[in-house]
Design a binder for these strands. Structure first.
Length: 447
RNA sequence: GCGCCCGUAGCUCAGCUGGAUAGAGUACCGCCCUCCGAAGGCGAUGGUCGUGGGUUCGAAUCCCGCCGGGCGCACCA
């Protein structure tokens, strides 16, 4: 409807240009057709006369009158009024509404969709939680943002690849393994010989128990059987990662979120992608050695300081596999890529983009896009629920889904714009949720 | 100190590519519904849009300063 009205107004402007009421070389400003706030102002309002007034050296209201007179005949509009400082208000004919209703009924699910993204592939990376614990409310916000974004892309014809990237090696996973190992040996977080950076949550004990019971777990298409050998740290790590990935999968499934690809950071090493990335960066002359470390001259690409790629101990900093990962997205043909990321990671954006530019392989400057979101706090009973990752106590996504229902949780996490901090009021969400378990109990009693 | 984000009703937040009386939920207050959903329906109250300047016919919206809050500024991930 707006598009059609926009076209009508544009034609009126052209008419005035052709009869010299308006200068022929006039740049037509970006005017808007918008839904009128008040019924008195009709159905749609247009501000073009006020925007044209200055360059046309005319009074907005007079211009508006001339524009209205020049409007092409059409069946959409029943009445046009000029109001206020020069708004053109359109009152639509009932037929216009009827036609739209018919379109909605005819097109059903397809209504409102378009094909503007046809033939293009977008990679949407979201959640990307490391398998070191259950998903929490922050991951929930990430998940629903990424899911909605993906659906929007799909609705506009894009080929959407939903991707979950996770670290299955590295320091944090080593900590996970020794935590499970400690639990399997009967050590608890309060003991003096509990590992210094160990994960303290109760779920670690659950994993340890399952490991000792020689349980099997399926994650990312692989079945892992626990050996029960407390001294085999590799086996423990493998089992622990699979266990937590499995738990996360269950949570995501309960949340209605799916992925096409689970991308393992370790594959970047085994496939030689990390080495390839470093080699390319060195080959293009954007690196230098200093203090026994290999540096990327990322300041050449908009970063505020140069970054270490390879530490003096020979290992890579995390940002190298990050660059390698994004390179892999590019090579997989993602013309567009979006990463949904907590704003506490926004500092890493500049260096990853710098790294990609330094590869000189044709990646556009702004690629990839990021969707940052702010922190979530949870209120329950009028008080903020304190979280302590150290102690392993925090509000999990599963808690919220069980307590207020899937859709209400999704709604409250997406209802706020992502760059506002969000307060999730559990009681409010419960009271407004159709899935509210208390409601069903009451309803059952009432019957 | 530097960078990013936020500051709108008691509370949680929309509105911010400038437009005509700044909206919603919630809380509080009033009214309705008294056998099948009173965790409902209707209505009222409530705002110097953090603050000071600037641009403009017109600023919550754009620009600059200041104040307040969050996050980030590693040879950690």
């Amino acid at each position: 409807m707006k598009v059609q009205l926009h076209e009508l107004v544009l034609q009126a402007v052209h008419v005035l240009q052709s009869d010299a009421t308006l200068p022929a070389d006039l740049a037509v400003p970006d005017f808007v057709i918008e839904r009128a706030r008040s019924r008195d102002h009709g159905d749609f309002a247009c501000n073009v006369a006020m925007l044209l007034a200055r360059s046309a050296r005319a009074k907005p209201r007079e211009l508006a009158e001339k524009l209205v007179a020049a409007l092409p005949a059409n069946s959409l509009v029943e009445k046009v009024e000029i109001a206020g400082p020069g708004f053109i208000n359109f009152f639509l004919a009932a037929d216009a509404y009827h036609a739209e209703v018919r379109r909605i009924l005819e097109q059903g699910e397809a209504y409102g969709r378009n094909t503007s993204g046809a033939g293009k592939t977008v990679g949407v990376e979201f959640v990307s939680a490391n398998p070191t614990g259950p998903l929490h409310v922050g991951h929930g916000r990430n998940a629903v943002i990424g899911d909605c974004l993906s659906r929007l892309f799909a609705a506009t014809g894009w080929n959407v690849k939903r991707e979950f990237y996770y670290n299955d090696a590295g320091v944090q996973i080593a900590n996970l393994a020794i935590s499970v190992q400690a639990r399997a040996r009967g050590i608890t977080p309060d003991d003096s010989n509990w590992p210094e950076n160990g994960y303290r949550g109760d779920y670690i004990a659950d994993v340890a128990r399952a490991y000792l019971d020689r349980a099997s777990v399926v994650a990312d298409g692989e079945t892992v059987v626990a050996t029960g050998d407390v001294d085999d740290i590799d086996a423990i790590r493998h089992f622990a990662v699979a266990s937590l990935r499995h738990e996360q999968d269950l949570d995501l499934q309960a949340f209605g979120v799916t992925f096409d690809t689970y991308f393992l950071e370790s594959s970047l090493y085994t496939d030689g992608k990390v080495e390839e990335t470093v080699r390319e960066l060195v080959a293009h002359g954007h690196t230098y050695e200093e203090g026994g470390a290999l540096w990327l001259r990322s300041t050449d690409f908009g970063d505020d300081k140069d970054r270490v790629m390879r530490k003096s101990d020979g290992t890579y900093t995390y940002f190298v596999p990050d660059v390698a990962y994004h390179l892999s997205k590019w090579q997989r043909g993602y013309q567009s890529a979006v990463t949904v990321l907590g704003s506490d990671h926004h500092g890493s954006l500049a260096r990853v983009k710098a790294g990609l530019q330094a590869l000189d392989c044709g990646i556009p400057k702004g690629w990839p896009d990021y969707m940052l979101y702010q922190m979530v706090t949870v209120m329950r009973g009028g008080e903020e629920v304190k979280i302590s990752k150290r102690a392993g106590s925090y509000v999990t996504l599963r808690d919220l889904i069980d307590e207020v229902g899937r859709d209400a949780t999704r709604y409250f996490l997406i209802a706020r714009k992502s760059d506002s901090q969000l307060v999730f009021d559990v009681d409010l969400a419960r009271s407004q949720s159709n899935d509210n378990p208390v409601y069903y109990i009451q309803y059952a009693h009432a019957r």
